[in-house]
């Protein structure tokens, strides 16, 4: 089951990220995962929030552009070669990764969680499941 990521447009200049965190903090939203992609003049913040609806509402009210993107989350052991084993399965299923980032596991501190953006999450999740990979749900994150 895919996870809902919030993607937010930010200008690449001082204060824009703080504007985002101010809004989330005021709404009592905790970020489970955060990744930033940037060019010289703009960036995209990718967030997984503990309360997606509250986060979307507060960001849009603050006049920011935020959209939802389905992503896949998988746990890997927090040890050498952990990611490598996971990616071998992705390779076997010919799944292309558009981008990825990592976050802490909420359920078990001996594991890490990897978030993947792929072209067609539903189809690719099925292909990976057929090879024994079980994704993490929004609630487990």
């Amino acid at each position: 089951m895919s996870v809902r990521q919030i993607s937010v447009f930010l200008e690449n200049k001082p204060g824009t990220l703080a504007q985002l965190t101010t809004a989330l903090a005021a709404a009592g939203v905790n970020m489970r995962a955060l990744s930033l992609a940037e060019t010289n003049d703009f960036g995209i913040a990718r967030i997984i929030a503990d309360d997606t609806v509250a986060a979307m509402t507060v960001l849009r009210d603050a006049g920011m552009i935020a959209t939802l993107t389905p992503v896949l989350a998988y746990a890997i052991p927090n040890e050498a070669g952990g990611l490598n084993k996971l990616l071998a399965v992705f390779n076997d299923a010919r799944v292309n990764i558009v981008y990825m980032y990592s976050c802490l596991s909420a359920r078990d501190n001996s594991e890490a969680v990897m978030i993947f953006r792929t072209a067609d999450p539903e189809k690719e999740e099925a292909a990976l499941a057929a090879r024994g990979l079980v994704s993490i749900s929004q609630e487990e994150l």
Binding site: T39, I44, R46, I65, V98
Partner: peptide
């Protein structure tokens, strides 16, 4: 100005 219609989570699409 960026608009919700133009925005995607993919940096490559926007550039």
């Amino acid at each position: 100005e960026m608009t919700p219609e133009m925005f995607t989570d993919n940096l490559g699409d926007i550039t």
